[in-house]
Amino acid sequence: MTDRYEPKIVALLCKWCSSAGSDLAGVSRMQYPANVIPITVMCSGSVSPLYILSSFKQGADGVLISGCHPGDCHYIKGNYYARRRISLVKSMLEYIGLEPERFRMSWVSAAEGQKYTEIIQDFVETLQALGPQTKLRRNA
């Protein structure tokens, strides 16, 4: 019997908004696919491109960066820097030939547990159709 491929999503979630939003989904018992490896970061602006590249290299099928809505950043401006920096990383990944759908960014507030589950649901469905990520993964 073959195991169904379950995509692995590395989600870098800012502590003050998105990580809290994912917690809200949890305590509200909202059902959503269990394919996420959540990593809390202090701010979406603190996400280094190396975290993203390293996630793909270690075999992540999808990577999500999620932070506070513009204007709501706990550190005032961090998410604006993230918006610019992550767009450059996304551009680079696509240019190399990674499927654009594998790398996503979202604004999820602490109250948006529902939105978080929808984002993950949609991401998992897309990744299931795309299949495992083999391009950037270290094969050994």
Partner: peptide, 14 residues
């Protein structure tokens, strides 16, 4: 390995 080489070049470019 290609996987390492790619990260090197991508991170340098970024």
């Amino acid at each position: 390995d290609l996987s390492e080489t790619l990260v090197y070049h991508m991170i340098r470019t970024i």
